[in-house]
């Protein structure tokens, strides 16, 4: 925007170089709005959606809004590409297809992990899975294409 913050992509690449992925979320206003955070584990990057009452989209269960679950999956996909791939700019979304597998309970945190299925010169295909208490019981999954070049 109007503030002089330099090259955001270079800033993110410096964070990647330093292996301090959790710092990226502070650069993204939307991440603060819904409570998206990152942690780097040995097995890879995990994106976390914090349990926030304002994320509820279904007050009966209560469950996280399907759009916020979709946001978690898309965010995790982009962050996974930034973490794992050699990129020269931010991946740009082409499309995303989201399957809702189980209720995503609004009373606990949700975790997501990405898998690069194919990295091409122009397009990367990513699979993303989200879970709450048990990674083998996903609450949602997505596949998405991102433009790389």
């Amino acid at each position: 925007m109007s503030e002089n913050i330099g090259d955001l992509f270079q800033e993110v690449m410096a964070i990647k170089q330093a292996g301090e992925f959790e710092l990226i979320s502070a650069l993204i206003p939307y991440a603060g709005l819904v409570g998206l955070e990152l942690i780097k584990e040995n097995a890879g990057l995990i994106t976390i959606l914090r349990n926030k009452p304002s994320n509820i989209g279904n007050t009966t269960i209560p469950a996280v809004h399907g759009g916020v679950v979709g946001a978690l999956l898309e965010h995790a996909g982009i962050m996974h590409i930034i973490c794992e791939c050699d990129t020269t700019r931010f991946p740009k979304i082409i499309n995303i297809s989201i399957d809702y597998l189980r209720p995503c309970l609004g009373t606990m945190d949700t975790y997501a992990r990405g898998y690069v299925i194919k990295q091409g010169k122009r397009v990367t295909n990513v699979r993303i899975e989200a879970w709450q208490s048990d990674p083998s019981r996903p609450v949602a999954a997505a596949h998405a294409h991102f433009l790389m070049g």
């Binding site: 925007m1 503030e3 913050i5 090259d7 955001l8 992509f9 650069l27 993204i28 206003p29 939307y30 991440a31 603060g32 709005l33 819904v34 989209g57 809004h65 399907g66 759009g67 916020v68 979709g70 946001a71 978690l72 898309e74 965010h75 931010f90 979304i93 995303i96 989201i98």
Partner: peptide, 22 residues
């Protein structure tokens, strides 16, 4: 607060996903 890329001011895709799912 919807911004995904503060350099361009573009909103995060999650906003559109939430609008359309709603």
């Amino acid at each position: 607060e919807f911004i995904g890329n503060r350099e361009t001011g573009l909103i995060h895709g999650g906003i559109i996903t939430t609008l359309l799912d709603s």
